[in-house]
Design a protein around this nucleic acid. Sequence first.
RNA 1: GCCGGUAUGGCGGAAUUGGCAGACGCGCGCGACUCAAAAUCGUGAGGGAAACCGUGGGGGUUCAAGUCCCUCUACCGGCACCA
Length: 823
Amino acid sequence: MARQYVPAEIEVKWQKKWQENQAHKTVEATDKPKFYCLEQFPYPSGRLHMGHMRVYSIGDIIARFKRMSGYQVLHPMGWDAFGLPAENAAVKFGAQPAKWTYENIDFMKEQQNRLGVSIDWYREVATCSPDYYKWTQWLFLKFYEHGLAYRKRAFVNWCPECSTVLANEQVINGLCWRCDSEVTKKDLEQWFLKITDYAERLLNDLDKLPHWPEKVRTMQRNWIGKSEGAHVTFTVPELQDEAITVFTTRPDTLYGVSYMVLAPEHPLVAKLIEGKPQEAQVRAFVDEIKKESEIARTATDAEKVGHFTGAYAKHPLTGEQVPIWVANYVLLDYGTGAVMGVPAHDERDFEFAKKYDLPIKVVINPLDPEMLAEEVGVEEAFTEDGTLINSGDFDGMPNRDAIKAISKFLEEQGKGGGTVSYRLRDWLISRQRYWGAPIPMIYCDSCGVVPVPYEQLPVLLPEDVVIDGKRNPLTSSESYVNTACPTCGGHARRETDTMDTFIDSSWYYLRYTDPNNTELPFSKENADKWMQVDEYIGGIEHAILHLLYSRFFTKVLYDIGMVKYDEPFRSLLTQGMVLKEGAKMSKSKGNVVSPDEIIEKYGADTGRLFILFAAPPERDLDWTDTGVEGSYRFLHRVWRLVDGHAGLFEGNAAAPDTADEAAKDLYRMTHYAIKKVSEDIGERYAFNTAISTIMELVNKLYTYPETADRGTLVYALRTLIVLLAPIVPHIAEELWQLIGNKDSVHEQTWPAYDPQALVLDEVEIAIQINGKVRDKLVVPNGLSKEELEAHVVNHEKTAGLIEGKTIRKVIAVPGKLVNIVVG
RNA sequence: GCCGGUAUGGCGGAAUUGGCAGACGCGCGCGACUCAAAAUCGUGAGGGAAACCGUGGGGGUUCAAGUCCCUCUACCGGCACCA
């Protein structure tokens, strides 16, 4: 009796069974190699979308494949559960952030289970749980203890819509990463983590990550933005030789300085203009610039505007008077917030000098004799290499050498020296929001800033708060704010900011290794056992943010001896977006396909199969309904194939006997499929071609003659089901039972291929004349170069092709072709 | 401006080490089954009448190039008044 393939029935059945059997609980077997497979944990927004389904399909095929291949696999899941949407829901519907979050988690967990993913839920973590954020706070204190967390007053990014400050990484083109509002600047005292201390290692160690996409590594390099140059200290005689230090990448042009420029926010500006005729004008200009948005301020096409302060600095080498200006194009938070102006050899300085009629002094002589030094700096800045002129003792030196020589000289004179500047800024982690881990710090009137003692953790989020989307909710809780100083016992106030949620996600992969530890965030033993994450799968949108922060955290934890690796993710797979009709799925475009509707209509297996088959994982995937239908059709095809031959498996099925040609061919195809699927899933992550190979095997099985050997057929069908198991776990399990097995297909050992089975008796080779294919010829396999050459050259087919021509050369490639060059 | 990536039939894609371009699937055509349709099974096709031409354009290396080298273009992404 033929049975129908009804995904809805079998999928729920097996999901229940796996749950009952704790089939996905991590099995710790010390005799097996470990594999840590991790998908970026989701934010519990309320509902899974296709991007989620894609990332879990990819993660699950890898996890299941590795399990069957003899690894002990860690494949956990959790929730990046702190964040603003929970608070927005509180403002909008009056929902409790905690309740709202946990309801979403329950719902989404259910959805994940319907995908049939093999997640070890016994290790689930939620960053909003006190059991978790206790350790986030603990880690913050460790950073503080090691001088890596500090408080400072600074002009920081402020999102008016989210009513909170943002880290530099969270400002995308001047807009808030979350809500796209225009970011403004605020002068606030905030907590920072000293990620800049790690800039050099974060940059250099990218070279230790060959299994990361080049794209991500490039993005991180750009973000860190290393720039080598020198500090040069100018003094201001009228201010008792107060120093102004500039950063430059071109110390070789130092003799060409004709002015210097400070950022409008530079702390010295007020002193310099005091009592000068320019004072009012400069002050007005500075105020105007401070009001400008980040976008307007950093636009490349913005016009350069500046004002003379009325003050002069002394050139460190020539002693000349150098006028000091302020201008909009100099940024306070890069380098030193002050630059030297060398109009002859810098395009921006040239433009500025022309506009304000400042002197242009040429100090580099072009190498190209066609170009005269007199012409330099007349029409445009000369930024190429050359030799120094008008530069005192350095005259005649090639400018590349002068960069080093002048740096060295400055250092000897105590007037600067070689240095490195980074674009990367320290990580601002304070957030004026409720739904995050409280920063465990206390301000005492007499003792100052006091960390909360470790034994008093966690600092719990209070519930008597007002969440109105405007003010910082924690300030509204009297019981929270007022506390006793841990040092003197006197009255003190708690820090009311919470931590950036990116801190929560910077260490969650370590918590999975030891999720129930009540003494520490994780034990070194467990972390060292499972780390590094062998395959980390997620979207490119975290290329800088989460991935840079996690690397930073891991390096700090490495330095303080908590882990043995200084990079968290050995290999990174950035999956592409899911598109429909060439556009990203979105409600406004009305092109959204939800995992739920796919599961309901076709089953999770069809959805997984389509996602893995339609495109390689790192590329964007265009969702097509006909493509999904095709995957569904394929699973039916497999079902009918196995169901139609179920009778063969009763009793003692025969062993393969490859005496007849068809059996031999099927046996070869089966082993080819084992080889190809193993390599494609295990090594190349080319799931699409793994599936296409399985399809070829199925096609072969459909044309297998009724009269050919049954043992080979049985063997091929069994293998087919095993190969399908990591991809479509439910139907594979059902078919495995259908052919009479009592155990689970997922507990089977992944098959090894027999190289002997792949050897063909005969191969078809191409006969090429002058590199063009002219005919095909079937020849015995295993011929040597010489034998093959002789065989083909003497063959009658060849005779016709080269008639009347002279053979000049013959290239024989066994198994592939013979190319005859004729003249 | 600097850096990185991508470019192959009508479409998604394959070709892993320089060796027969277009596997597999979608869509399409034809046939079988059916009174008919759906489903299913089978089958066909890069373009061109052909010689030939074909992997974004041009050049090169090689017996042989989607693959290597040079150069240009387009698109996607990161950084960018960064001194």
